Simulated assay, not measured.
Amino acid sequence: MDLRIFTEPQQGASYDTLLTVAKATEDLGFDAFFRSDHYLRMGSADGLPGPTDAWITLAGLARETRRIRLGTLMTAGTFRHPGVLAIQVAQVDRMSGGRIELGLGAGWFEEEHRAYGIPFPKERMGRLEEQLAIITGLWGTGTGGTFDFDGTYYRLTDSPALPKPAQARVPVLIGGHGAVRTPRLAARYADEFNLPFASIEDTVRQFGRVREAAARAGRAPDDLVYSNALVVCVGKDDTEVARRAAAIGREVDELRANGLAGSPDEVVDRIGRYAETGCSRIYLQVLDLDDLDHLELISSAVQSQLG
């Protein structure tokens, strides 16, 4: 089971804080550092000192880390034109030496669009489908060739399809709970399907839909990586678990039911239950980015048991 650290910087984190967490992620042996792509805090968090841009952040981390994979859960398709995003991701991939992964979604948080003057179109899923076709098409065009696309929402003419990423193929992540269109898009474009904040029962159901969609598309279902994103709250004892839950404004019982919470052995057992669904990778949503002892405990007492 791969364990990846997943952060929500819109809740309140500077670049320096993210750099500290990313370096700890690398030093403690985790597989990757991922971040959300949001510009407005959610809930009661103050969001200070203000938002950081996902791809500017990852560009900086690309130069200041050496081993870990870096990526987004999920880049909002409403924030950037697909041709521009293809350039940005390819450049950051080169800056990292080929360690970038692109999670791409339709965008959903209407309030942040209003707050920063970003259009929030109704046809976001249709746009996402064209964005996926464009980004993968640009990267897949041979050097010296050109790429054209004539869609409902986007048109590209005689694009040189440059620059190319360092990797032969940047892994593309698609995720979500949608019953029909999301599995179909994953089957066509994704290297990995990610299901955020889902129960074991819902995970079984959604992974099954994606596998069925892959088979219908003529693709081996096992070609995809299947992953979950879950909030994490681990403590050496009940007192420490309660303290960490309180620090992120959550209840222990709710976290045990909907995330990965409890002692290291309890969390390892629950991870095993997710593994039985076909999940081979978990993004640990870490909400208190100042608590590096939490990461150390997860590394030494949870990750060490997973092999």
Rank of each mutant, 00 (worst) to 15 (best):
G208R: 10
V234T: 12
A213D: 02
V232K: 03
R243K: 15
N228A: 15
D222G: 06
A245F: 04
L260P: 00
I200G: 03
V241Y: 06
R244Q: 08
A214E: 01
A198Y: 03
V210I: 12
G259C: 07
R205D: 10
R209G: 11
R243G: 05
D238R: 13
R244C: 06
V210C: 10
E240H: 12
V231D: 11
R256G: 00
A198M: 13
A229G: 04
P221T: 07
V204F: 04
A217H: 08
L260M: 15
G218M: 01
G218S: 12
P264K: 09
R244D: 09
E254F: 14
T203G: 06
R243Y: 08
A245C: 08
G259Y: 09
A187M: 02
A187T: 02
T203A: 12
V180Q: 09
G262N: 13
R243I: 04
N194E: 05
A229Y: 02
R184K: 06
A246T: 13
R211W: 10
S263M: 14
I200K: 02
D191F: 05
T182M: 10
A215G: 08
L260Y: 10
V231P: 01
Y189L: 05
T182L: 01
R209T: 14
G208Q: 07
G249I: 08
C233E: 02
G218E: 03
E254K: 06
R188Y: 02
R181G: 05
D238S: 10
A257D: 14
C233H: 04
T182R: 04
G235T: 09
V231M: 11
D253Q: 13
A198T: 15
G262S: 13
L185N: 01
A246W: 09
G262M: 13
A261Q: 03
A246G: 14
L195D: 08
G235D: 10
A246K: 09
R181Y: 01
G208Y: 07
N228T: 14
L185M: 15
T239S: 11
P264W: 13
S263Q: 12
R243S: 06
F193I: 01
L224I: 07
L230I: 05
A215M: 04
A257T: 11
Y189M: 05
A257M: 12
N194V: 09
L255Q: 03
R219V: 03
N194H: 12
A242M: 10
E240T: 14
E212S: 11
D237C: 06
S199T: 15
D237Q: 12
R219M: 06
R188W: 08
A179Q: 09
V252K: 05
Y226V: 00
E251W: 03
T203D: 04
L255R: 02
P264Q: 15
D191A: 07
A257Q: 15
V225Y: 00
Q206A: 00
R256K: 15
A247M: 12
L195Q: 04
T239L: 13
Y226G: 00
G208K: 05
R244L: 11
G259Q: 12
K236W: 09
R205Q: 05
P196K: 09
E192H: 10
